[in-house]
Design a protein around this nucleic acid. Sequence first.
RNA 1: GCGCCCGUGGCUCAAUGGAUAGAGCAGUGGACUUCUAAUCCACCGGUUGUAGGUUCGAUUCCUACCGGGCGUGCCA
Length: 559
Amino acid sequence: MQIKEQLEHIVGQALDQCVVSGQLALDEVPAPSLERPRDMANGDWASTVAMRCSKAARKNPREIAKLIVDAIPQNDIIAATEIAGPGFINFRLTTKVLANVVADVREAGEDYGRSALPEPMRVNLEYVSANPTGPMHVGHGRWAALGDATARVMRHAGYDVYEEFYVNDHGVQMDVFGNSIAIRYLQLLGHDVELPENCYGGSYVTDIARGILERDGDKWENVGAKERLVAFRELGYKAMLQDVKDTLSRFGNHFSRFFSERSLYEPDEQGATAVDRALQAFRDKGYVYEDAGATWFASTAFGDEKDRVLIKENGEMTYFMSDCAYHYNKMQRNFDHLIDIWGADHHGYVKRCEAMLEAWGYPGALEVVLGQLVNLLRNGEPVRMSKRTGEMVTFKELIDEVGVDATRFLMLSRSSDQMIDFDIEEAKKQDASNPVYYVQYAHARICSILRKAEEMGIRIDSMDEADLGLLDKPEELALCTKMDEFTELIALAARERAPFKLTHYAQELASAFHVFYTNCRVIDEEPKIRFSRLALIDAVRTVLALTLSLLGVSAPSKM
RNA sequence: GCGCCCGUGGCUCAAUGGAUAGAGCAGUGGACUUCUAAUCCACCGGUUGUAGGUUCGAUUCCUACCGGGCGUGCCA
């Protein structure tokens, strides 16, 4: 059982007794209200219950605190109790219960901190979903890091997470893309044609055209424009999607599925498409109407600022119609909850998407996580142009230059509500200013000690017999306390979809270790102390590696 | 105009409504004959954008301003 749960139980018993005996004039037994004091000087845990119920009980909080403290039953986890400030009840834990965290960690291994939800929850997490008409850019990289870490953390906290990438392979943009390639192809063959304003001008388009030219020669020069466009569209689409997949896989992402927008327009066995079904579901609920030749979704019924077009006057489906079909399809796949991660520039789109799920009778089923955008800098100066391509720096180029670990850690080290200024030169620095190496270094240092111990013939496998009661130094207990926080941290980070909290935690745990390392010896100590400390640092190694792995960052054993 | 996000030491950021607002970087001064100095220790640095409100208690919640970012298509 977690230390917190044990404490809650004990304080709960005391509260129970105070209420039952009438010492506290309350109708209900209040919650224990335990929290970790920010300042360790105030103990390991504190309860604010006395202040919370002082009004209802018509008693001074400190008096209430006194009653509660006096009612606390005999136990072996609280070493000292103190009433402080306006009515805090501070608890100091016994070294025994703290040191026992080491055993918990070593027993659980990489499952440490795992928890189960009260009810199973299948979550569909959709993120990145970059258009297959160009390479991933830096902004997509933030969503790749955020989505991946969110999925990992949520899984550790007991959610069943399915990661999905929506491929926008349908619609006019694809034709524009195919046409862009076609024009570059003709230009390479010496034709005097200009690239229209709305086309994709990136050099990667020319690269694709050149690739086609090198493989097929002038085979496509004299075919019909339509045939050329369709052929190039498909070739370009496949090349771009592959490029995106390669970049993602290099970055360490593992999507469960790449969902094609086109598939929404393909009829199933009953002859209906996903779009048909979504539209019909709207009609069944009465939220569709025709006006000015277009078909509309009455999203204002759910707080949207205006109704939205599903089918345009010219008969074409809107992008929003596809999105409706896609989300309807997700619900039909029996997910309990849908999470979409979008850039903040799409926030105007949130309301209508929530509205569609509400219209179908799934209010609250869709949760949109909005992430603020990334500014790319180099030595403090905004970077817009890539030297090589003369365009936006692609995400692949960024991880080539900075590395996956540093990129991930920096992308994840701020709340998604916070804009990121990503300075390439800062990110590349392998020194104290770069927190990722600080954390990895702590891990490598531990591995180094364990390696050394092994070389010296110390039987590492007998660590299980270590007497953890010997861990009583402040530096040792600080590590135990930090590791004990891990389980709550995971639950919180998962619930708030906030993996950035793990980057802060990793630095705190690493810091506690570096302090320990400076002040305490391991190998040169007498055998009993040596074993208990080997067990301690082995546990720290496990938690550091686990934290990094949930962030998708490697934990090197040598640096 | 309206909507969303942000505003905390020189810089970058933390802080389930809790105690004296914490870290890192930068700056200054210290610590390697000892398991990795990519480390540690100390000092310096704050009217949490402004003005009100809610309460035992507000960086956190509410209202109004100020400043910055993004958005406000029968585009995708």
